[in-house]
Each structure stands twice: as structure tokens, then as C-alpha cells.
């Protein structure tokens, strides 16, 4: 069969579609023209304005506090759940799997709305604490899934071997299980941190006055067109951080891979 040109064309057009808006955004962050309609010359004034904006830094601080707290709690809860699901094959674990799987499917707006109604009905004050609770809730599922996948390859007979050699269960877990799981747990924690830093919809529903995280603050800036170029500058900086993080993690995983081979 003659191979069609259609797939190749789709790929290159789609990649253009994926990256064109991001490119426009980066270019406009250096454009003196306010709406980026034409090139009015190179400027760094949007970056200067960004650095002078105290509210942005306050929101970034909130985001980091929330992400750190939710990563720690959800990594512990998710890892323990993943271990239980892989170690035991009972009806209880089926229920647990269902409970962990559901938050991954439900649309964000439903999760945000249900938590908002829940917090209001039980009188839980909306603020950084409620945001943390919401983030932990969706991060548990992601951590559990990542660690669970890692545990599929884990050979429990080496735990038995540790017991035979006189290890108690504490030692077996700390010296055998956890080191073997460490890359999976680290990947899960990294995912939880990223998801927490990035989340807008759920956070928007459960945040209270003064507890804006960075995405919630960016959203309020978007409502005023005078902030448009400042958001371009902020987005460009965030892109640089993201690409650096992807690059570093990529470098670390390929390096480790070579070591094993």
C-alpha cells in the first residue's frame, strides 16, 4: 500500500497549532505594543512592572505553601494506599481502587462545586486550609496510581527473604520496600506538586478572601486588559521554569537509565 501523506501533514500542522500561541505569547512579552497587534520595539518594561507587583509575589507564596503541604500529605496517603492495593487482593481493596479512581474522572468543576458546598455546610472557613484539603483530595489519586504502577513490577519475595533473614516488618519496609519504591514515590510527589501549583478551577471554588494562589490571581488579572502584557511576561517566566524542570528531570532519568543498562 502506498503510504499516505495525510498523517505527516497532520502531525506538523498540529504541532504548529500547539506551539504557535505559546510563541506569540513569548514574543509579545517583549513587545512595547500593549495588545501585540504589531511590533512596536523591544522592551523589558512588562517584566519590570511584574517585579513591582506585590500581589503576584504574595500569590506565588500562597501557591508554594499549598503545594508543599498538599504534596507531603498526599504522597504519604497515596503511597500507603498503593501499597495496600498491591499487597492485598480483597473486596476492600476493590472499593479502595474505585474510590481512588473516581476523582481522576470527575470534571474539575464538579469537584470544586461539591467541596465548596461541603465546606459551607459544615462551616469550614474558606482559605489556605480549605485549598490544601481540596488539593490533597485530588493529588492522593495521582500519587496512588503512579506508585501502584511501580509496585506492579515489585517482587514481594524479596520482602519474604528479608523476613527469613531475621528482619522485622519495620526493617523490611524501611530497608527493602521504600528504597525500591523511591523513584515511584518521587515521581508521584513531583506530579502532585505540579498539579497543585497548576490547579485553577478547584482552587477558585474553595478559596476565600486573601488566599489567592498564583493561578487564581492570574485569572483575576485576565479580567482587566491593562494587565495583558504583564501576564505575558509572567507566563514567559513560568514557561522558562517549566522547560528547565522538564529538562532536568529528563536529564536525570536518561542518566539513571544508562547507569542501569
Amino acid at each position: 500500500m502506498k503510504s499516505s501523506r495525510l498523517p505527516a501533514t497532520t502531525v506538523w500542522l498540529t504541532l504548529l497549532f500547539f506551539y504557535l500561541p505559546i510563541l506569540v505569547l513569548v514574543v509579545n512579552s517583549f513587545n512595547a505594543h500593549k495588545y501585540g497587534g504589531s511590533w512596536d520595539g523591544f522592551t523589558l518594561k512588562w517584566y519590570v512592572r511584574l517585579f513591582e507587583d506585590r500581589a503576584v509575589w504574595h500569590a506565588l507564596g500562597n501557591s508554594l505553601v499549598v503545594a508543599l503541604a498538599s504534596t507531603i500529605v498526599s504522597t504519604v496517603l497515596g503511597t500507603v494506599a498503593a501499597y495496600a492495593m498491591s499487597r492485598f487482593a480483597s473486596r476492600l481493596q476493590k472499593v479502595q481502587y474505585g474510590l481512588i479512581y473516581m476523582p481522576l474522572i470527575v470534571p474539575d468543576i464538579l469537584m470544586g462545586m461539591s467541596l465548596l458546598l461541603f465546606f459551607l455546610s459544615v462551616g469550614f472557613e474558606l482559605g489556605l486550609a480549605s485549598i490544601c484539603v481540596a488539593h490533597i483530595t485530588f493529588c492522593i489519586s495521582y500519587v496512588a496510581m503512579v506508585v501502584f504502577a511501580r509496585l506492579q513490577d515489585f517482587d514481594y519475595s524479596i520482602m519474604e527473604a528479608a523476613y527469613d533473614l531475621g528482619a522485622d516488618s519495620r526493617t523490611a519496609v524501611l530497608k527493602v520496600l521504600l528504597p525500591a519504591l523511591a523513584p515511584g514515590i518521587a515521581a508521584g510527589a513531583l506530579l502532585a506538586f505540579t498539579l497543585s501549583i497548576d490547579d485553577f478551577v478547584i482552587t477558585f471554588f474553595v478559596s476565600g478572601p486573601g488566599s489567592s494562589t498564583l493561578p487564581v490571581h492570574i485569572y483575576s488579572m485576565m479580567k482587566h486588559s491593562r494587565f495583558m502584557p504583564v501576564i505575558n511576561a509572567l507566563s514567559t517566566l513560568l514557561l522558562v521554569v517549566t522547560f528547565a524542570a522538564v529538562g532536568v528531570s529528563q536529564y536525570l532519568t536518561t542518566k539513571k537509565g544508562n547507569g542501569v543498562k
Binding site: 500561541p21 505559546i22 506569540v24 505569547l25 505540579t194 485553577f200 501576564i231 513560568l238
Partner: peptide
């Protein structure tokens, strides 16, 4: 890996009447 809000916002600039 890039923030969802920022991707949506980037389109606002691309589609803007003066964009």
C-alpha cells in the same frame, strides 16, 4: 506542563481584534 490558564490566555492574544 504549561499552565492551563496561560494556554487559554495565549489564545486570547492570538485571536484579539488587534492581534
Amino acid at each position: 506542563w504549561t499552565n492551563f490558564l496561560i494556554r487559554v490566555f495565549a489564545w486570547k492574544a492570538v485571536l484579539h481584534p488587534e492581534g
